[in-house]
Design a protein around this nucleic acid. Structure first.
Lengths: 134, 134
DNA sequence: TATTGTTATACTCTATAACTATA
DNA sequence: TATAGTTATAGAGTATAACAATA
């Protein structure tokens, strides 16, 4: 399956690009999610990232140690933490995103707008199907 | 970037499918490569899988312990190992491949033949570009 | 009781680099 | 010397499961 091989190749390029900025893919995934959903709980985040709450806990530990993320207790529910980017964390993700996008764009060079459009609808379809598999 | 999110999603589904058959993605990658290139050296394999020879060494250690792969010394060069699937290994990969393909096909459900064709040319392009980035 | 988050354990994968044996 | 493979180390990520605190 060419599809899978190309996916792996693309991902490897992305991982390398992130590594050059000292971020892992799961970390970037988390930061990028927080950027749009500031204040989510760890449980919500685990569901969104498709990992267990135990793993999210470890991820956040590392990101908190890096000073990019912070836990704040929920006002109404003593069990819940709400997650927020620190200003350093926001600066970090804002710095990484353009480079990330640039790499993806570079890999999409030579793909015509029509093809991009077609790809988009294919991806929508695949996304729906992949999500329903879980 | 929708592209990246969908890629991750697809890969996660694939990893889960492989896990249900007690194979990791790197292991499957290696087995599938050996299936078509029986007798490659560890160095060649490392280049093909884009990991270091040290990592390939560990991967093979685990696969040898599972009885799926074996190292055989090269006849002419005392430094070289050539890698072969055992019969159990071949049975394993032949058992996993159809399920793997089925999952990919299922995710591609609802994508028209025209779109698949378009996707193919996009992937070719992306593949070329991604490879040149390294 | 159920849920949120934490902790412990074990394993795979990866990067890096020093090491050996052979060429 | 250069190359093929091995070994050591350290770290991230993941799965699983037991645990504490709160609801």
């Amino acid at each position: 399956m060419q599809l899978v091989r190309t996916f792996s190749r693309v991902q490897r390029v992305i991982v390398q690009t992130l590594a050059a900025q000292d971020v892992t893919l799961p970390q970037f995934d988390l930061l990028a999610t927080l950027r749009f959903s500031d204040g989510v709980t760890q449980q919500e985040l685990a569901e969104r990232l498709l990992v267990t709450k135990g793993n999210v806990c470890g991820l956040i530990d590392r990101l908190e140690k890096l000073g990019w993320v912070e836990r704040r207790p929920d006002d109404h529910d003593g069990r819940v933490n709400r997650l927020h980017l620190t200003s350093r964390g926001r600066r970090k993700v804002e710095a990484v995103l353009p480079q990330h996008d640039a790499v993806v764009l570079r890999m999409m060079q030579g793909v015509s707008p029509d093809q991009v459009h077609a790809l988009q609808s294919v991806l929508d379809q695949v996304e729906r199907q992949a999500t329903s598999d879980e």
